[in-house]
Amino acid sequence: MAQEMSSRNEFVDFWNEILVPKFVRFKHVLVDGLTHHSRQVFPTLNVKPGDKVVDVGCGFGDTAIELARTVGPSGSVLGLDCCDAFLQFGRDDARAQGIENVRFVEADVQTYPFAPEHDFCFSRFGTQFFENPVIALKNMRQSLKPGGTMTMIVWRTIEDNPWLGLPKQIVADYLPPPGDDARTCGPGPFSMADPDQVRLQLKSAGYEDVEFERIDAPVLVGATPDDAVAFQLALGPAGEIYREAGEIAEQRHEQITAALKSELARYETDEGILMQSSSWKVTARSPG
């Protein structure tokens, strides 16, 4: 059963009103597209059978379900996200797969009343969007037992992620940048790309033993060039430019899509459109 959030902020509203329908439309990219990435990350996580786990910003629930398999029937997973529409996919998938040790709750991680009872706290590409990262990271730490582990996966710079950077450059050749009043989903996908800054945030939030490991892996950005173009114009940095340009984007749509398709088609494989990505696996420990 979902727990209704007592209050929302502009970023949460933006996710629910604008991004959720687009994420649902491109669920096949956002979930399946990270398969190569997950294969490098999940076998290395400090999780064992019987552990109690929190998955922060769990989205469609695929990571929470994977963690639930890892901890087994004697363990449990709590998946949190601010968008209940995402979580319903997780509930349905868990039920269909017979996974009974995972629970999905709609919540703002910055204020969720955690008990310090979990062995492991995980987030894949969720912490980058916190309105106040130190407060949220501190609350995540408070979910952990003394000595518990937190691991978050965050994108490195846009220059290290051509799957987002290249489409942005192409769209920016045709459209003006978003204005200062543009609605956003929060700080953005690259807000935790700087290890020095993130290390300070984690220290301020009370963590110890902070470590960074670079993860490079291809991501699937579409089944076909047309699918990849549609994805880029709906989400990410290119999608933000396109959305905020409004009528100008509509007027130049054919030029933009042709330019994107020409470039993205160069990355077509038997699997689909594969492009390179780079992230940090950041691990830290709760004192104790």
Rank of each mutant, 00 (worst) to 15 (best):
M5T: 09
S6T: 07
R8K: 10
N16K: 11
N16Q: 13
N16G: 10
L19I: 12
P21F: 11
F23M: 13
F23D: 07
F26S: 02
F26P: 00
V29I: 10
L34M: 15
H37R: 09
H37M: 13
S38R: 15
P43I: 09
T44H: 12
L45Y: 04
N46E: 14
K48V: 09
K52D: 09
K52I: 11
C58W: 02
A64L: 07
A64H: 01
G72M: 05
S76L: 01
D81Y: 06
C83S: 15
D84P: 09
Q88S: 13
D93N: 13
D93P: 02
G98D: 11
E100S: 14
R103H: 15
F104W: 04
V109N: 12
P113W: 10
F114V: 01
C121Y: 00
C121I: 03
C121F: 03
S123N: 02
G126C: 03
G126W: 00
N132R: 13
I135P: 02
A136K: 02
S143T: 03
L144I: 04
T149C: 04
I158T: 06
N161G: 06
P162A: 12
L164E: 12
Q169G: 11
I170P: 00
V171I: 15
P178A: 09
R183Q: 08
D194W: 03
K203Y: 11
S204K: 15
A205W: 01
G206F: 05
Y207T: 00
Y207W: 02
E208C: 05
D209R: 00
V210Q: 04
E211R: 13
F212S: 04
I215H: 05
I215R: 06
D216K: 15
V219F: 11
A223Y: 10
T224L: 13
D226L: 14
D227K: 06
Q232E: 15
P237Q: 08
R243H: 10
G246F: 06
G246E: 05
T257D: 12
K261A: 08
E263N: 06
L264F: 11
E268Y: 11
I273H: 04
M275W: 03
S277Y: 02
W280T: 02
R285I: 08
G288C: 01
